[in-house]
Amino acid sequence: MAGAAQAVVDVREFKSEQEEQRYHTLIEELRCPKCQNQNLNGSDSQIAADLRRELYRMINEGQSNGDIKTFMVDRYGDYILYRPRLSAGTFVLWFGPAILLLLGVVVLVWIVRRRAVGASAAAPAMSEQEQRDLKAMLAKTQ
């Protein structure tokens, strides 16, 4: 099948099932620096293969997931993480949509209230003479 997707298959031996699971979790969470929107597991680029090899080495050396991610971020920047850490540089990325939504709601409420106040102010109150004339007209029609 020419149209079938090809997955990258790396055969690696681990000391334990937990290390193998960590490896697979990390290659799913880390993005290929060369490819756009592909993780290390799905990329067949040379740099992705190098990073999988490096990741395997670091896991075998006993480094924690945090240490591995810190190393990758120091080397390639926050781009390598599919879920970037919360920092001053990623604040807008994490909270920007919520802030824009809240700002939109505030503007909408302000516009609605302004129109309501404008509608009530547009109809001037009747003077006492006008009220008497209106009552007289209504009384004649009944």
Results as ranks from 00 to 15, higher is better:
Glu29Ile: 12
Ser120Gln: 11
Lys135Met: 09
Ala7Ile: 12
Val106Phe: 15
Leu81Cys: 11
Lys135Cys: 13
Arg57Phe: 14
Ile68Arg: 00
Glu29Arg: 08
Val8Met: 03
Asp67Glu: 07
Gly62Leu: 04
Arg113Gly: 11
Gln6Cys: 04
Ile99Glu: 00
Leu101Met: 13
Gly77Glu: 03
Tyr76Ile: 04
Leu30Thr: 03
Asp10Met: 02
Gly104Pro: 12
Val106Cys: 11
Ala2Phe: 10
Cys32Tyr: 09
Arg83Val: 11
Thr25Pro: 00
Leu26Gly: 08
Ala116Leu: 13
Arg12Cys: 10
Trp94Gly: 00
Cys32Pro: 09
Val73Trp: 11
Lys34Trp: 13
Gly77Ile: 08
Ser43Val: 10
Asp10Thr: 05
Trp110Tyr: 12
Ser87Asn: 00
Leu26Asp: 05
Leu81Ser: 06
Ser45Met: 07
Ser120Glu: 08
Lys135Glu: 07
Thr141Gln: 11
Leu40Gly: 07
Cys35Leu: 07
Lys15Phe: 15
Arg12Leu: 14
Gly104Phe: 15
Gln18Gly: 03
Glu19Val: 03
Tyr82Ile: 09
Ala136Ile: 14
Leu51Lys: 01
Asp10Arg: 04
Asn41His: 07
Asp74Tyr: 13
Arg52Met: 02
Leu30Lys: 03
Leu30Trp: 14
Gly42Glu: 03
Gln131Tyr: 15
Gly96Asn: 02
Leu138Gly: 13
Ala5Thr: 08
Asn41Gln: 06
Leu138Asp: 04
Leu103Asn: 02
Leu100Gly: 12
Ile80Trp: 12
Ala4Lys: 04
Glu54Phe: 08
Lys135Ile: 15
Val11Pro: 02
Ala136Met: 14
Ala2Gln: 01
Arg57Gly: 01
Arg75Trp: 10
